[in-house]
Design a protein around this nucleic acid. Structure first.
Lengths: 336, 336
DNA sequence: CTGAAAGCGCTTACAG
DNA sequence: CTGAAAGCGCTTACAG
């Protein structure tokens, strides 16, 4: 692979000059620019970005850690992030955090070793304490996605989980449902806990006692929603509506309900959170809460870009709100 | 950020020695190893992988270009690739090719600039000619996913598209369907063309004339499947079965059929290709062909790893076959 | 077992 | 407008 020295020889100029034409920096006479350019073409020369990064002390890249590569949710996030990074002329280095706080830290370290200009971390499980420690340890700015942080000196963006949950559950309550089942997200994560809490708060505000038989923990997958719903059905506890903490679990639950001979929404109303692409095309179409995944990604990446650029950025957590989308899986409770 | 020189000073040894303990290479007395190790700990030193790559002339990374970050399909591929790369102790550099041959070439060049040890390219649109030219131009080994290449000196893995299509369409034919509609993938890609051809071949083999009114081009999305199906319905041409070239389009089509008052599978059988996670949970569950996405990724990455390692690898295209999964969206044609 | 020195492929003051 | 030289943070023969 041709190096800058090969170009120098062929063009008969110094490395400094070649560097200037590569980077369009400083003054270069048009005629010598052309000579250098032709030499680069002829040798099929591509500057080694590792060497550039080392010499200029800037890798011109932003590191992104996602919880998992799986699913439409992170697909949308990655797509948006890649687009913004490209627009800004930055490399995007993407890493899989494997949904595990320890592996997330490893992922961050690998990004640190590659000297990213800034790191964006989407974490479901890392404790705030660990995050702060991490932030102190590395000397690269880091922005967190998906978490409401107490520490106001951190950069973070997240969804208003309680609000999203309220939108969903209140919709059921407004339709006169009293006996509302809930399939939760994994309860070892802050998001899972917040959504469960939101559900419980809404129920409590309407002076409805919580019924543990109507709550089952899921794993965010279709299959887990199916199983959790079967578990609730098995208790025999009556309910007229179901709130699933994400669309995938709602899809699984709808299957379990249908198999149990229940009609949606005639017998059971179903609502959830996410607005996956498939949700509008289910039978019946799923009522859900859309989360502004593009907007949150935008905010995180733009903050990161500004930080990488050395700009002063307002610290703290920015919160984004979801939007209720009512479709045909929810209906008013019929008087019996 | 601490450098190797800081560690040298603190530990009172030379760079060579520090390098040896970092890389566990050569002999180092246990006592000095410990001194160096402690110094690294104390300084929170992480070797700069850019400098390592430059000095050792190996970036220890494999570059991967996907057609798009969107969707479960590439999510599964990325997840698998990330796992294998990690196991092998390699960095995985992922880039978005934006489903466009020109941007794919740009993506490859950016990976070349980063001096990946090997590149894996998933391309839907790049012509074989362009690929060969690309391969010649860069001096890094490259393996192609998703394409059957004529040139036997290239490394490639792909699905047997004709076979997958036959599995689906023959299932319909075996169930006595004669009038079979088809929603194609985009016809500007080899995969789209192959699947259409497979459909046409099967029909022809059963001496059934092709009816252009029963064929509509889709865009691989749910929405496009919905629209394509409406278009077919509008022609008024009778059909008892529908083959959609992927699950997403089948989901959209099922919606359109249901809205038109048709029952699946009583009035219309539906089958497709992909076996998305949601497909088993639709009403009715979707018959489809599962493609071994993990296996193909495995093969591509392992080939890449061997190439990066300088091993001799058998060139040519490896082909993988899908598996028919019959569920309830298909039924025997009822005699009328 | 350890160190001095050259080198990886660039960038960037500094001088002219 | 251009070049010589130092330096980025490492690795790797080579010598001892």
């Amino acid at each position: 692979m041709a190096t800058i020295n090969d170009v120098c020889k062929l063009a008969g100029v110094s490395k400094a000059t070649v560097s200037r034409v590569i980077n369009r920096t400083g003054q270069v006479k048009e005629s010598t620019r052309k000579v250098v350019f032709d030499a680069m073409e002829q040798l099929n020369f591509k500057p080694n970005s590792l060497a550039q990064a080392l010499a200029s002390n800037s890798s011109n890249s932003i590191g992104l850690i996602v919880s998992t590569f799986h699913g439409n949710y992170f697909g949308a996030l990655l797509k948006q992030a890649a687009m913004l990074a490209e627009q800004a002329g930055k490399q995007l280095l993407v890493t899989d955090g494997h949904n595990d706080p320890l592996l997330e830290i490893e992922a961050v370290d690998s990004l640190v070793a590659r000297r990213c200009d800034v790191i964006v971390l989407y974490s479901r499980h890392m404790s705030e304490q660990d995050f702060i420690a991490l932030k102190q340890r590395i000397s690269i700015p880091i922005v967190m996605i998906n978490r409401q942080l107490q520490d106001k000196s951190c950069y973070a963006v997240c969804f208003d989980q309680l609000h999203a949950t309220q939108l969903a559950v209140n919709q059921l309550l407004d339709m006169n449902h009293k006996q509302i089942a809930c399939i939760t997200s994994p309860l070892d994560s802050p998001t899972g806990l917040l959504r469960l809490q939101g559900y419980q708060d809404c129920i409590a505000q309407h002076h409805i006692p919580t019924n543990p038989a109507l709550i089952a923990e899921g794993g965010n997958t279709i299959e887990s929603g199916y199983q959790a719903c079967q578990k609730i059905l098995l208790t025999g506890a009556p309910f007229s509506a179901l709130f699933a903490c994400n669309d995938n679990m709602a899809i699984g639950a709808m299957k379990a309900l249908t198999e149990a001979g229940l009609k949606i929404p005639d017998d059971i109303s179903v609502i959830s959170i996410d607005n996956e692409a498939a949700s509008a095309f289910l039978t019946p179409p799923l009522s859900t809460v859309e989360l502004p995944i593009e907007a949150i990604t935008d905010s995180a990446i733009k903050t990161a870009l500004a930080l990488a650029d050395g700009q002063k950025v307002q610290a703290g957590t920015k919160e984004f709100r979801g939007k209720l989308i009512v479709r045909d899986s929810t209906a008013y409770l019929r008087k019996k």
